[in-house]
Nucleic acid binder design. Structure first.
Length: 411
DNA sequence: GTGACATTAAGTTTGCCATT
DNA sequence: AATGGCAAACTTAATGTCAC
């Protein structure tokens, strides 16, 4: 079965190069707009310049926006699309995720690694996300496994089976790798609205939930509009803001059922270890293979969320991983090279190989590193070096780094 | 703040091969 | 045979991290 590609027909477009005023580019202090695009994808927008009115006029403040309002919102491709405002929210600016870069590369990378693994455990294999805090709700047409709400850098497109070229990747703004835990903080904050408190109740932050930021439609709770007060309207009244959400009789049973389900999920997750997941993954691979042969339909070679470094490179890695690597590299081609090398070559491979071999000859007992992988990495890194803002590297230096890297990694 | 240690970048030497 | 190019191997310097 072919996984449907995410298609978005640009209904309204605006020139990317169109300048934005300083005022437009400013973030609203502590405010964000949570909205839903026509195809069901959601986004959390922090900048006023990322939203236009329905008539394509810029806005200067979020305050004029009301839930249900039709607007045009910027997606990761820098184009504007029709969207509907869900609610205006407040976040804690003291914890700006973009200012959390650590100096320790190894620790930083380890955290990305940790997140990556954790994410695979919690919601594998969905590892893609849209721009600046975009999230994906369950939407018709996509398998459930492709939904997740983890914050990703804007350079990663949401469910995009088509790989990005290095220039595509690099030409995008890199606002920083948003704090990977941010989505958890957002679910419950001391300024949570009743609705957010409710969502926090549902999705205990101790359990990474694949759709923690998904907006629950009111009709899914079986409530009539008059049975409750819209919390987003409430939020405009500061006196209400600090009140904790209290369950009414109507939704008490629903909450209990959801909490029970939540507990069951927690039990399942805590009982699983990495070995179980590995076995499960292998089982799924075999099932895919079997079903593929049985139906005669070619299954996609890549898991959802994986992408090639560049088209036909054959070098696959998850969008999340690539985003983490880009963030770690800090637009330094050599850093990028080392991170990609670590990603694609194991210690074992390096210890049994040399980088290039002398004119095709290799030392006794050794082989040459996979040329396609080597060339792919070198090509990608060199391509990145041509992009604006990147610190380029000479090819000779890169080759030397490769030789050193291979040797160092083999020891 | 300091020293030990690890990692990385870069310089140098050596050997092999192709070309002239 | 001389020369130049290329890559491996070795070495050193610079930098960052961590424990004390």
């Amino acid at each position: 079965m072919e996984i449907p590609k995410r298609i978005r027909n640009p209904i309204k477009k605006r020139k990317v190069s169109e300048p934005v005023t300083a005022l437009q580019n400013e973030e609203q202090e502590g405010l964000y707009v949570f909205l839903t695009f026509e195809d069901g994808y959601t986004a959390r927008i922090c900048k006023t310049c990322d939203i236009l009115t329905e008539k394509e006029s810029p806005i200067t403040s979020f305050e004029g926006l009301i839930p249900g309002a039709r607007v045009l919102a910027r997606w990761s491709d820098n184009k504007f699309y029709n969207a509907t405002v869900d609610h205006i929210g407040f976040y804690d600016q003291k914890q700006d995720p973009r200012k959390g870069a650590k100096k320790d590369i190894k620790r930083n990378y380890a955290s990305a690694e940790s997140f990556y693994n954790q994410n695979r455990v919690a919601s594998a294999p969905a590892e893609h996300g849209p721009s600046s805090a975009l999230t994906q709700p369950p939407s018709p047409g996509l398998p459930p496994t492709q939904h997740q709400s983890v914050q990703l850098p804007c350079s990663v497109k949401p469910f995009n089976p088509q790989p990005m070229t290095p220039s595509e990747y690099c030409n995008q703004d890199q606002p920083g790798f948003l704090d990977l835990d941010e989505h958890q903080r957002q679910t419950i904050t001391h300024n949570s609205t009743p609705k957010e408190t409710f969502l926090g109740l549902l999705y205990n932050p101790s359990i990474p939930h694949p759709s923690a930021e998904v907006t629950i439609q009111d009709d899914q709770l079986g409530l009539e509009p008059e049975e409750y007060e819209d919390p987003t309207v409430r939020s405009q009244n500061s006196s209400y803001e600090n009140e904790q959400w209290e369950q009414c009789e109507t939704c008490k049973l629903e909450v209990q059922a959801l909490l029970k389900e939540n507990k069951m999920m927690k039990d399942v997750l805590s009982s699983m270890n990495l070995e179980h997941l590995q076995v499960l993954r292998e089982f799924i691979d075999k099932m895919e293979d079997y079903k593929s042969r049985e139906s005669g339909v070619l299954m996609p070679q890549t898991r959802p969320g994986q992408q090639e470094l560049y088209p036909d490179s054959g070098l696959l890695l998850s969008s999340t991983k690539l985003a983490a690597i880009h963030q770690e590299s800090k637009k330094d081609c050599l850093r990028l090279f080392h991170l990609l090398f670590d990603q694609f070559f194991t210690h074992e491979e390096c210890s049994n190989s040399v980088a290039f071999g002398k004119h095709g000859k290799v030392p006794e007992g050794k082989t040459i590193l996979d040329k396609s992988k080597v060339n792919g990495i070198l090509t990608y890194v060199m391509s990145c070096g041509k992009c604006h803002g990147w610190k380029p590297v000479e090819k000779s230096k890169l080759k030397k780094a490769l030789i050193n890297k291979c040797r160092m990694r083999s020891t």
